[in-house]
Design a protein around this nucleic acid. Structure first.
Length: 343
DNA sequence: AATCACGTCAACCGCTCGCGG
DNA sequence: ACCGCGAGCGGTTGACGTGAT
């Protein structure tokens, strides 16, 4: 349990809330248990009345947030994996700050967590490079430098994992999907590369297997609420349980046990099970075509020089330890700054 | 040991949207 | 068409942790 002692509320608001009988700030264990027990027996929704009925001196908003971001059984905690980083970068390039939409493709991760990751990690790197996180330069640096390196790291980890027959921690997203989408997008329409960040391209990711081993990897549209069941079934067909390398059957829909439940439930209480949002596993081979991340030269006029220079600097991208930290070390940042400034 | 600076992330805020009356 | 309410979303805040000095 990681309830920190916070009292961030101003004294004025605090006193008003006290008058109203409402509590703010960090949740106590007792409050968590009350909320979990109530949701377990009555389900989610109608948060204001839920708060009252459960005897919680909290706003409905607060209850909803606490449940969604912390108490939900399938909330996944821990570091953002390389695969998840790749997905976040890719999906953010498509949708921008649509955190909840991005979170839909990272099972167990909340929009809040993804948002925090973006602000604390990605924006920090943009700051280091002295360019705006929304600038084309930074986006291209992500797309053609950061993400390819992430893919390489994922491949290396997968190879190492295969050789030692260990499994990926936490059954995390097998995010070759993002790279597969990359491949598809970059090879089919180079213009998308530069237009996908403005919100016009609001289609769902079109993750397809490059090698064709999997029958279908087009991620279904999960944004439509009135076809939730259909979407769930579709996604279930892409769902890959932890430690499995093949797509799972959809027969267990509705009784799917979250692969993350062991680490997600802070109190070890099984509240209820929901159809687990599926996720895509594309074949690792999707990455291995040499032209995968070659920047389409027509998309941005500095591409060839920028990236040839990168390729020529053999030492620059040699990674050890944490990928992102290594990639963005002082030397690399300086080099990137020089490249960006020369554009 | 004390202090400072910075990163992390849970929680709150304000706003928008959708729905029912 | 309008209104009120609940739900959800993105942005922001600030307490806490941790490493550096």
């Amino acid at each position: 349990m990681d309830v920190r002692g916070r009292s961030r509320c101003s004294s004025n608001i605090q006193s008003e809330e006290d008058v109203m009988g409402l509590k703010r700030g960090p949740w106590t264990v007792e409050e968590d248990l009350s909320l979990m027990n109530y949701v377990a027996s009555h389900g989610e929704g109608r948060w204001n009345s839920l708060a009252r009925s459960a005897g919680l001196r909290r706003t409905g908003k607060s209850c909803r947030l606490r449940w969604l971001n912390y108490l939900r059984p399938d909330v996944r905690r821990g570091n953002i994996t390389l695969e998840e980083q790749l997905l976040i970068l890719d999906l953010h390039s498509r949708w921008g700050n649509r955190w909840s939409k991005i979170a839909q493709y990272l099972p167990g991760r909340t929009d809040n967590e993804i948002k925090n990751y973006w602000r604390t990690r990605v924006q920090k790197h943009a700051k280091q490079l002295k360019c705006d996180v929304n600038s084309k330069q930074f986006k291209d640096a992500m797309r053609y430098l950061w993400m390819p390196r992430l893919v390489e790291r994922i491949q290396a980890a997968a190879a190492a994992s295969a050789s030692t027959t260990t499994t990926s921690p936490g059954g995390s997203i097998v995010a070759t999907a993002a790279a597969a989408a990359y491949k598809t997008k970059n090879s089919s329409s180079s213009n998308n590369t530069t237009s996908s960040c403005n919100g016009n391209n609001d289609n769902g990711p079109n993750y397809r297997p490059i090698n064709g081993n999997l029958e279908q990897l087009v991620l279904p549209d999960i944004s439509t609420k009135n076809n939730e069941f259909t979407s769930a079934r579709l996604m279930q067909s892409y769902y890959t349980p932890e430690n499995s390398s093949t797509a799972a059957s959809s027969d267990s829909l509705g009784t799917q046990v979250s692969p993350f439940s062991d680490v997600a439930n802070p109190y070890g209480i099984s509240v209820y099970e929901t159809p687990n949002p599926g996720y895509v596993q594309a074949n690792q081979a999707a990455y291995q075509e040499s032209s995968l991340f070659s920047p389409p030269s027509e998309c941005f006029n500095y591409g060839s020089e920028f990236f040839q220079a990168m390729d020529q600097n053999n030492q620059l991208w040699l990674d050890s330890g944490d990928f992102s930290d290594n990639l963005w070390n002082a030397e690399n940042v300086l080099y990137l700054q020089q490249q960006l400034n020369s554009i």
